[in-house]
Simulated scan of single mutants.
Amino acid sequence: MWLPSYATPSERITRTLVVLFAALVLVFLIAPLFVVVPLSFSDDPFFTFPVPRYSLRWYRDFFGNERWISGVVNSSITAVLTTILATILGTTAALGLAREEFPWRRLAMALLISPMIIPIVIVAVGAYLFFGRLGLTNTRTGLVLAHTALAVPFVVITVTATLTTYDTNLTRAARSLGASPTSSFFRVTLPAILPGVISGAIFAFATSFDEVVVALFLTGAEQRTLPVQMFSGIRDQINPTIMAAATLLLALSVTLFLTLAWLSRRAQRTA
């Protein structure tokens, strides 16, 4: 919020300096990410900055290479399936945790968000050993289940935050008017918490689409995702096509961020 009109000059100067400092810190943090954008348009087969000549050479190589397109398709399918499962499970868990009579609420919450705290390498090794006994390694099913475990905490947190402002009397009113639990959820509760559910789904999609460590352990040649393909390209032979792939991922991340910002503003207006 901006300062009111009656704010003193010193308060206005202080706020201006704080905003300026925050902007500089933000630029410092994100500027290295955007260096890949001009490099992706370079015609040079080596990483040269400043860019000597601009070209779409590496984008043509990206879209004309079956391995890169296969990685995009595999990442998209895995991310969509993960988003569906994580959204359903995370929303259900958040609704259960929101009940006052739910026993051991803090312990259950800690267990649900533990995949966010445990190092990703430990999660990957554990998933590999567990799914190996079930015959789910080198399968899309195993990757989706592992990514769902990583994405559920984001859905739980966002939906739980939305439920803190939800008036449970609306659900009670719907039930008193004869609505079934299912009907009251889909007609009353879900529309009210929908911004949080969508935000959690976006986080789940981004988590799955960008994840590489677990995918390295669980995928085979046919299930190789885009981040795994990028990692393999860096390890085997550095190719500027990776910069084109990184730019596309950056564009996807910016789109998801803007969507989240729009949902947040909409939720504040409807609150």
Score class of each variant (00 low, 15 high):
Leu194His: 03
Val51His: 02
Tyr128Asn: 07
Gly200Lys: 06
Gln268Ser: 12
Tyr54Val: 11
Thr259Tyr: 13
Ala94His: 00
Leu81Val: 09
Ser75Met: 02
Thr189Gln: 07
Ala244Asn: 13
Leu95Cys: 05
Trp68Leu: 08
Leu111Arg: 02
Ile77Arg: 12
Gly90Glu: 05
Tyr166Asp: 06
Ala244Pro: 12
Glu66Leu: 09
Leu249His: 07
Ala174Lys: 06
Ile238Arg: 15
Val73Arg: 15
Ser199Trp: 02
Ser40Glu: 09
Phe205Thr: 05
Asp44Lys: 08
Thr165Ala: 11
Ile13Pro: 04
Leu145Asn: 09
Ile77Ala: 11
Pro103Ile: 04
Ala124Asn: 14
Glu66Ile: 11
Leu143Trp: 03
Ser76Asp: 08
Val152Ala: 04
Ser208Lys: 09
Tyr166Glu: 00
Phe28Thr: 01
Ala251Leu: 15
Phe209Gln: 03
Pro9Tyr: 06
Thr182Gln: 04
Thr91Asn: 08
Leu26Ser: 15
Arg266Ala: 15
Ser183Tyr: 13
Ile88Gln: 01
Ile122Pro: 01
Met109Leu: 09
Val73Tyr: 10
Thr158Ser: 02
Trp2Glu: 10
Ser5Phe: 05
Arg15Glu: 12
Ile69Leu: 15
Val123Trp: 01
Ala127Pro: 04
Asp167Met: 07
Ile202Gln: 07
Ser40Val: 07
His147Thr: 04
Ile88Thr: 08
Val156Gly: 04
Thr160Pro: 03
Gln268Met: 08
Arg265Ser: 14
Thr87Pro: 00
Gln268Pro: 00
Trp58Asp: 12
Ala94Pro: 01
Phe21Met: 11
Ile198His: 15
Thr207Asn: 12
Leu56Met: 10
